[in-house]
Design a protein around this nucleic acid. Structure first.
Length: 152
DNA sequence: GCCAACGTTGGC
DNA sequence: GCCAACGTTGGC
């Protein structure tokens, strides 16, 4: 059974439009253990709410799908990479990433304020735990957000 | 740009 | 193993 997730990206770094253009991307740069552990649970076919953080307004901007399950994030042992971690190596990778593909851009992005105000979403982690960049979402929550996002 | 929240590191 | 210091996230 498919699971549901929310993943954050700053649109100035990588936006839903970038994903629409590229078709698919490797979700590298996650350097938080809890977020990494959630990525390790992802299965091909799982659906992802693509959330724009540090945006105006912060919002769920689109939907993506997992197309490759967790594998080592090579940028973690590249000294020139922004997210370089000296404790990670090819022999002993510390960080993983997944590949996701573009599914849809929401015609009506769902801002954080709406997530906070909508009945049925009061338990979403994104409204509580500001700093977790990869998090699980309940199926019902996913459906509500997708529906809101498709409204015009 | 500020700063609260909170995850991580490292001294002890 | 505690916890203070530090760094980062991310809303505002």
């Amino acid at each position: 059974m498919a699971q549901y997730w929310l993943m954050k990206s700053e649109p100035s770094v990588y936006s839903i439009d970038d994903l629409a253009r590229d078709g698919r991307t490797a979700w590298d740069g996650v350097r938080n253990f809890q977020a990494r552990n959630f990525m390790r649970k992802m299965k091909v076919g799982d659906l992802v709410l693509f959330y724009h953080s540090n945006a105006d307004p912060p919002a769920v901007a689109g939907i993506a799908r997992v197309v490759r399950e967790a594998y080592p994030d090579a940028s973690s042992w590249n000294p020139k990479a922004h997210y370089y971690d000296p404790d990670s190596s090819p022999q002993n990778p510390r960080w993983d990433m997944v590949d996701v593909e573009f599914v849809e851009k929401l015609s009506n992005p769902v801002p954080l304020s709406t997530l906070k105000d909508t009945s049925g979403l009061e338990n979403m982690l994104v409204t509580k735990r500001g700093r977790l960049s990869v998090q699980p979402v309940a199926k019902g929550e996913f459906e509500i957000v997708r529906k809101l996002g498709r409204k015009r």
